[in-house]
């Protein structure tokens, strides 16, 4: 399958675009000439064998890694020297594979940190504990509780994250990203460690989000990727080798070769099952 050209006639408004992005780490090419775009309310899945460059792509998207080449555009504006703390202000939220919950802060406090983008009062007001700062905090608390409630985690608000079941911690991590009401959500392997039932539940939550935001999803579980993504991009050795609708990607010979390590006749096998990607993911 050919990699489709960027759709014509778009202004880039509301899109997240990576153009010809290249990243090297001391001579090792992690990403090379990767171009992707995520349209509003689209779920774009990024898959690839281990070492394909998925995490680097995510780190570029959120400012943890500055690309050697290429540009990042968001809503038609080129982002230069994007720094992680600017991400929330731009309407972009990211979850981490390891969740990164603050273990010694309550679930509610964890989520409230994510809501700070919507704080109406500034640093000075907070420092001086002005009344409007207290009002603002109550508003953020209500917002955080509403998101926890939406994800079915409100009853855990007062608990510390380590005391929660794993799947619930995943939800808290998602709540912390969602509470900033992002327009683009970057999800880094959100289903890792979940059972099939939990993953199906997570998939339905994810589908509900697409009414409000675009999602860039890096995930190993092909069942989830195939069921929730509008489009899938496939990376291999830092290069984009395929992109298209799930059904097209799963039968793409280049994708099959990347996952299985051999040339495969078109339609002879699918990369969809988890057993299929074991050759490179192990």
């Amino acid at each position: 399958m050919r990699i489709p050209a960027r759709p014509t006639g778009t202004t880039g408004e509301g899109r997240f675009e990576l153009s010809d992005v290249g990243v090297s780490f001391g001579g090792v090419v992690a990403l090379s000439e990767v171009s992707l775009e995520v349209a509003p309310r689209q779920v774009l899945g990024v898959i690839g064998p281990n070492g394909a460059g998925k995490t680097t792509l995510f780190n570029v998207a959120c400012g943890f890694v500055t690309p050697d080449r290429g540009t990042i555009r968001w809503r038609g504006v080129t982002l230069r020297r994007l720094r992680p703390h600017q991400l929330a202000g731009l309407g972009i939220a990211r979850t981490l594979q390891a969740m990164g919950l603050f273990d010694r802060m309550s679930v509610l406090d964890n989520v409230m940190v994510g809501a700070d983008r919507h704080a109406a009062t500034g640093f000075g007001s907070a420092l001086l504990a002005l009344p409007r700062s207290a009002r603002d905090e109550r508003r953020l608390r209500d917002r955080a509780m509403a998101v926890l409630d939406e994800l079915g985690a409100a009853s855990y608000a007062g608990r510390l994250p380590p005391s929660l079941p794993y799947a619930m911690r995943k939800r808290v991590s998602l709540a912390r990203a969602l509470v900033s009401n992002p327009d683009l959500l970057l999800l880094d392997e959100p289903a890792s460690g979940l059972s099939q039932g939990e993953m199906a539940e997570f998939g339905s939550v994810l589908r509900g989000l697409t009414e409000r935001m675009a999602v860039l999803l890096v995930e190993h579980h092909m069942d989830l990727v195939l069921s929730v993504c509008d489009e899938i991009a496939v990376l291999d050795f830092g290069r984009l080798i395929a992109r298209g609708a799930p059904d097209d990607v799963r039968s793409d010979p280049a994708v099959l070769a990347a996952y299985l390590g051999v040339e495969v006749r078109e339609g002879a096998a699918s990369p969809g099952g988890r057993e299929d990607n074991s050759a490179r993911s192990a």
Partner: peptide, 19 residues
């Protein structure tokens, strides 16, 4: 809350918009 978040995990706090 922001100060505690920054103290516990700088990288995550930055991602959440904490200066």
């Amino acid at each position: 809350l922001m100060m505690r978040a920054a103290a516990f995990n700088q990288e995550v706090a930055r991602l959440l918009g904490v200066r």
